[in-house]
Design a protein around this nucleic acid. Sequence first.
DNA 1: CTTATCCCCTGCCGGC
DNA 2: TGCCGGCAGGGGATAA
Length: 278
Amino acid sequence: MPELPEFEIHARKLRDWMPGRRILRATILDEKLLGDPDPDAWQPILAGRTVTAVRREAKYLFLDLDPSPAGALHTLVAHLRMTGRFVQDTYVVGTPAHPTRFAMTLDDGTRVRFEDRRRFGRLWLSPTPDVAALPEVAHLGPDALRVPLSPEALGALCARSHRPIKVFLMDQRRIGGLGNICAIEILFRARIAPTIPAALLPAAAIARIARIIPEYLEWAIDRQSRRTLLYIGEKGSENIFPIYHREGTPCPNCATAIARIVQAGRSTYYCPACQSGS
DNA sequence: CTTATCCCCTGCCGGC
DNA sequence: TGCCGGCAGGGGATAA
C-alpha cells in the first residue's frame, strides 16, 4: 500500500544514517521475496559491502553498494508492495509485530529488518546502479515528485488515454509513484470526477491536476513523516486522509456523504457533489 | 499499442 | 463465540 510519500519517507530516514555503513551480515528469511532466483548468491555479495547511497525512484528504493572485489557496482532494489516496511532497530526487544522477511546487520550495530505481512514485496540484487537495467523499473514514467509534469506534458499523456482519470493517474508507466490514495486525494483537491476519461479533461482541469500533484505529495510526506507508518487495519493505525476510506462520512467541504466505487479493481472514494464534473 | 480480468498472499473487521 | 465474505496505500501475467 505504500505510495510515493511513504517511499520518500523511508528513503529520507535511511539516507540519514545508512550511507557509509558496512553490511556485516544479510539474512534472507523468506525466499519468496527475492526477485532473483539464487538466494545463496546474496550473502556473499552483500557481506562486507558499504552502502554508498540511498535513492528512490517512484515506488522503488535503491541501496547502492561500493565496488565489489571484482569491481561490480551492485544495487539492492526494494519494492514494499502492499504491506512492506523497513524497520530499523539498534537492538531487538521481544517479538516484532510482523515476521521479518529480510534483515541486515551493519557495522554500527544497527539492524534493519524488512517486514511484509502479505509477502507481496520484492527485493532484487541488481548488478548495476542503472535504474533502466532492471526490467521491473525500466518502464516507469517520470517520478511524480522529482520530475513534476507540466500541464502541457500531462495534457499530452491524457490525450492518448481513454481510461478514467483516476485509473490513469495510477499507471506507473505514465507517472511514477502515485497509488490509490494519492489518486483519490489529488482528484478530490482538484474537484474532478474520478470516472471522467483522461482524454476528455479540459485544459483547466489538467492544469489543476498538474499543480496539485506535487502539492499533495509534499503535504502527505510532511504529514506522515512525523509518525510511525502503520497500514490500514493495523493496531494503532489512524486515517489521516480527508477522503480515502471514508465512505458515508460527510465531505469536509460540503457535508455530502462520501461515495465509494470500484475502478480497475480498486476502491475509489469521492464526493459526488464536489467532484461531479471536470 | 491499449485496456480488462485474474492472480498472487495474509490478516482484520463486520455481519450473521 | 465462530465462521465467512469483503477488503486492504502493490503490480505482473494473460487475454481480447
